[in-house]
Amino acid sequence: MTAKSRTMPVVIFLAPFLLIYISFQVYPLVQAAVSSLYDWDLLTSQKHFIGIDNYLRMFTDPTFWDSFKHTLQFVIYSTPIIVFSGLLLAILLNGRNKFLQIYRTIFFAPYVLSVSVTTLIWGFMFNPQKGLLGALSTLLGTREIYWLTDPNYAMSAIIITTVWWTVGFNLVLFLAGLQDIDGSLYEASMLDGANSLQRFRYITIPGLSRTFMLVLVLQIIASFQIFGQVYIMTKGGPGGTTRVLIQYIYEAGFRDYELGYASAMAVFLFMVMFIISYIQFAVFSEEKK
């Protein structure tokens, strides 16, 4: 074979993906970093170089910090709930039984819904007059809660919605992790007379530690990117109490037409998530060795 006949296929096999990847993934990243250094108006398309002013502005912008705080709140409250409910369900549902399969299907099903179907359902679930939660509080004789318009409850409503929507994803990952644990370990421990609690403590927990780290990091990354639920259900309200970072980036870019400023915040978000992803990567390759 000539050198040419070996090189051509490689080029042809790689070119379509690499071209699209460089154009729509690598280039935008560079472009974001560059435009974050400009004062760039979307309407007039005028731009001029202002160095790091967008970043300086960002660190003194109370709305930016509020949005970042709400994003962190969401990450910190929702992550343990979603991860541990996924883990608990996986432990209850691990096995080859036909019934278990049906439960698994039910708990996983909401994950395939789009964010707008999810918010359509839950937006009305939380409606005190029209929704099921309102009917439930009437039934129990408790006070009506204005979930989506009360600053004390709006973030909880977003979190409840998200748990329902995405717990199935973690369930699936934990189930895969449980099935990877060597079954002979359990058999051996039973011969040694270990009870089910001891087996859980000394086999299941250590066996799941890698999956647990993985799920945790994936969940944190996903939670940092929260946008749709908030934007559709509360628009960031009431009074900005649920505005999250991606929403603020979106508003800065497309409501205030400040592309440079929006890019600076996008770069900030990218840095935060890059660090988290890097930790995941480091943990993951550490385990592989």
Partner: peptide
């Protein structure tokens, strides 16, 4: 490496493009 780029964060440059 692109797996580490949050897809949701990069919509402004894509929009401009």
């Amino acid at each position: 490496a692109g797996l580490m780029v949050p897809k949701e964060a990069m919509f402004i440059p894509l929009f401009l493009m």
